[in-house]
């Protein structure tokens, strides 16, 4: 297998984020061990292969942990409070994201089912409760 070709198929950070802005989460699947990642990764930490295929997530996952941000940084100043989440996706692999529609921690639980939605102003990876 030509290592250069599959590697080129995995989305760059910029492509992944612009795609997430439209509500589509893309990641990469290791062609050696099928591990899925939604971050920038050129070498698999599990099997050490360097060949990946592009994966388009169904967008469904489960909250691993979360917080509700009451004092955001400048880029999100117009959006507080909102939830910041770590989500394990149905395909395997996890991603970070935010939930503009959750402003109260009582509205979310570890284990809650969530889905990817287009993000306000195309910022980051956005989720809503499924």
């Amino acid at each position: 297998m030509n290592a250069a070709t599959p590697r080129a198929e995995a989305a760059s950070i910029g492509e992944a984020l612009s795609s997430a802005g439209r509500g589509v989460l893309v990641g990469r699947k290791c062609l050696g061990c099928a591990r899925v990642a939604f971050i920038d990764q050129l070498r698999c930490p599990a099997c050490h292969k360097q060949d990946f295929a592009r994966v388009e997530s169904r967008g469904e996952g489960e909250v691993v942990s979360f917080t509700v941000v009451a004092f955001p940084a400048q880029a999100f100043a117009a959006h507080g409070p909102f939830a910041f989440v770590v989500v394990r996706m149905a395909e395997g692999g996890a991603t970070t994201g935010w939930m503009p529609s959750v402003s109260d921690p009582r509205d979310l639980k570890v284990g809650a089912r969530v889905r990817v939605v287009p993000s306000p102003e195309g910022r980051g990876i956005a989720f809503e409760k499924a």
Binding site: I13, L17, F38, I39, S65, F66, T67, V69, F71, P72, A73, A75, F76, H79, F82, F84, V85, V86, T95, T96, G97, W98, R123, G124, I125
Partner: peptide
């Protein structure tokens, strides 16, 4: 891009 870009601050990461 993946943490701060999704709204995380340092308090938020440790809160998680």
């Amino acid at each position: 891009p993946f943490e701060a870009g999704c709204g995380a601050t340092f308090p938020a990461l440790y809160a998680t």
